[in-house]
């Protein structure tokens, strides 16, 4: 009887922890939606931060995330291709794979400090390029690991068929192997994009922030996340409302990209 009782208690506790986990998700989403939706006005999207809107911040955040992806995706994919197709089984590849895994979990604030020393301090001020580099440093290891794992799922026979047809190695990789892993890699890119677009710490002292609309990457660059951090600490109600509106929009963007990524991979299988 005792062990049956113990069994019940543990099962109930486990179920309870799942309920608590889900509860927090709904609690956060509910308060965020309530605060966010009631704070959003039409002018939120049409005005820049200096006039109480987030237009320049959205454009700035997306610009940096997209340019960071433009840097990180080719480099990360090529590195993943090297690990799986060229160096597979070699000592070097396994060392690089491990280092890349470690980089994936490096604290984002430290990456910010590193980029500050490299691209802000020597050049005399915050600039958009530094923010882009910081974000891409966060993104590269994720792309490497996704590419590596997705290429591993491609059956050996496909590569052999390519060799039998007389294809050169890089043509086989590009036209057969990568093509076969396309969906998985795209999902990985989407998920890592969703991750870096919500990053704050690497931007704080690289691109910093800008109240005005700008596309000039040589100066301070507008950022949605950094603005949320600043606005939330101001005492006035208008700033806080704007912070809630910005948080809500950011969360919706991140969750939507996530769901699209998951949906894509499910459709394939």
């Amino acid at each position: 009887m005792n062990r049956l009782l113990l069994n019940k208690i543990i099962l109930i506790l486990s179920t309870l922890s799942a309920v608590i986990g889900i509860g927090f998700l709904f609690w956060i989403l509910a308060t965020l939606s309530y605060k966010g939706i009631t704070s959003i006005h039409w002018s939120t999207f049409t005005h820049d931060l200096v006039k109480g809107g987030i237009r320049n911040l959205l454009v700035g955040q997306f610009t940096m995330a997209i340019l960071a992806s433009a840097l990180a995706v080719p480099v990360g994919m090529m590195a993943g291709i090297y690990l799986r197709e060229y160096g597979h089984g070699s000592k070097l590849a396994s060392v690089i794979r491990n280092l890349s895994d470690v980089m994936m979990s490096a604290p984002s604030i430290v990456i910010g400090v590193f980029v500050f020393a490299l691209l802000v301090d020597p050049f005399g001020g915050y600039n958009g390029y530094a923010g882009i580099v910081a974000l891409s440093i966060m993104m590269i290891p994720i792309i490497i690991s996704t590419t590596d794992n997705m290429l591993a799922l491609v059956p050996k026979e496909l590569r052999e068929a390519g060799i039998a047809l007389g294809g050169s190695k890089h043509k086989i990789i590009l036209q057969i192997v990568v093509k076969a892993a396309k969906v998985g890699i795209t999902t990985g890119v989407l998920l890592s994009f969703a991750r870096i677009i919500g990053e704050t710490a690497p931007l704080l002292f690289t691109s910093a922030n800008n109240q005005f609309f700008t596309m000039d990457l040589t100066g301070q660059f507008p950022s949605l996340t950094v603005s949320i951090y600043n606005l939330a600490t101001y005492p006035d109600e208008a700033s806080r409302e704007l912070a809630w509106a910005a948080s809500f929009i950011l969360t919706m963007i991140v969750l939507c990209i996530n769901l699209i990524g998951r949906y894509a991979i499910r459709n394939k299988k």
Binding site: A18, I22, I28, T200, T225, I228, Y229, S247
Partner: peptide, 24 residues
């Protein structure tokens, strides 16, 4: 669905946790 919900919880940017934590 519970798995998906848990993974979405992991995807929410940390600054949102901070905002929510501070005010709620």
């Amino acid at each position: 669905p519970v798995s998906i919900a848990i993974e979405l919880l992991a995807a929410i940017p940390s600054i949102i946790y901070g905002m929510w934590g501070l005010f709620y």
